[in-house]
Amino acid sequence: MLQGREHEVFSMLFLDNQHRILAYEEIFRGSLCSTIIYPREIVKCRLSYICSANIAAHNNPSGNPAPSLSDKSFTEVLKDTLSLGDIHLLDHLIVGTEGVCVTGSM
């Protein structure tokens, strides 16, 4: 769903306590090379679901799925923010035409 996009999209998978998918939402849409993501908006969206875990995902329109320093930094901020509400960030997937990488948030 994210691989062929011409602009960057940040999405979340909301999971139950058995890690089954409750919902998938595209939360932020950016430009060709970036998007601005606000953790508070993710928390607000998360309150719509009774979930115990999340998986973050975004695409790199450049095709390269390797996580940047800002991807790794943001993953840690998001993980810490969600943990305040006893929500676990299981992974952050980065999708490109060359494949998928994870930031190693577990």
Results as ranks from 00 to 15, higher is better:
residue 73 S to A: 15
residue 65 P to C: 01
residue 85 G to F: 07
residue 55 I to A: 08
residue 52 S to Y: 09
residue 82 L to G: 05
residue 51 C to L: 07
residue 69 L to S: 09
residue 89 L to N: 05
residue 59 N to G: 11
residue 79 K to E: 06
residue 80 D to H: 12
residue 64 N to W: 05
residue 62 S to E: 10
residue 84 L to E: 14
residue 82 L to T: 13
residue 55 I to Q: 08
residue 74 F to G: 10
residue 49 Y to D: 05
residue 58 H to N: 10
residue 88 H to V: 15
residue 82 L to V: 15
residue 70 S to A: 13
residue 67 P to V: 11
residue 87 I to P: 05
residue 55 I to W: 09
residue 52 S to T: 10
residue 93 L to E: 01
residue 53 A to M: 00
residue 87 I to Q: 07
residue 88 H to F: 07
residue 47 L to C: 02
residue 59 N to P: 08
residue 71 D to Y: 02
residue 84 L to D: 11
residue 52 S to A: 13
residue 89 L to I: 15
residue 56 A to D: 00
residue 85 G to A: 05
residue 50 I to P: 05
residue 65 P to E: 03
residue 65 P to N: 00
residue 86 D to R: 15
residue 70 S to N: 14
residue 79 K to G: 03
residue 49 Y to C: 02
residue 60 N to L: 06
residue 87 I to K: 09
residue 77 V to H: 06
residue 47 L to A: 11
residue 74 F to D: 06
residue 74 F to M: 15
residue 72 K to I: 03
residue 86 D to K: 15
residue 67 P to M: 08
residue 72 K to W: 03
residue 54 N to T: 14
residue 48 S to Y: 09
residue 50 I to F: 08
residue 53 A to Y: 01
residue 58 H to C: 02
residue 80 D to S: 12
residue 70 S to C: 11
residue 90 L to F: 12
residue 78 L to E: 03
residue 78 L to D: 00
residue 90 L to W: 13
residue 67 P to A: 06
residue 63 G to Y: 09
residue 85 G to Y: 04
residue 60 N to G: 05
residue 77 V to C: 06
residue 73 S to Q: 14
residue 54 N to F: 04
residue 75 T to S: 01
residue 52 S to I: 08
residue 69 L to H: 07
residue 78 L to Y: 10
residue 79 K to C: 11
residue 91 D to K: 03
residue 86 D to P: 04
residue 63 G to W: 07
residue 74 F to C: 08
residue 92 H to S: 12
residue 78 L to K: 07
residue 79 K to M: 08
residue 87 I to W: 09
residue 47 L to N: 13
residue 48 S to D: 11
residue 70 S to K: 11
residue 72 K to V: 03
residue 50 I to R: 06
residue 54 N to D: 00
residue 53 A to E: 02
residue 64 N to K: 12
residue 64 N to V: 15
residue 90 L to C: 12
residue 47 L to P: 00
residue 50 I to N: 14
residue 83 S to V: 06
residue 88 H to R: 14
residue 47 L to Y: 01
residue 92 H to E: 03
residue 49 Y to W: 15
residue 50 I to L: 14
residue 91 D to R: 05
residue 86 D to I: 13
residue 48 S to G: 08
residue 64 N to H: 11
residue 93 L to G: 04
residue 71 D to A: 02
residue 70 S to M: 11
residue 72 K to D: 02
residue 47 L to G: 02
residue 88 H to D: 09
residue 74 F to I: 14
residue 61 P to G: 11
residue 91 D to N: 09
residue 69 L to M: 10
residue 87 I to E: 05
residue 70 S to F: 11
residue 73 S to V: 10
residue 77 V to K: 05
residue 67 P to Q: 02
residue 80 D to T: 14
residue 74 F to E: 12
residue 75 T to H: 01
residue 64 N to F: 14
residue 48 S to F: 10
residue 49 Y to T: 12
residue 92 H to Q: 06
residue 65 P to Y: 01
residue 65 P to H: 07
residue 60 N to D: 06
residue 72 K to Y: 01
residue 64 N to Q: 07
residue 75 T to I: 00
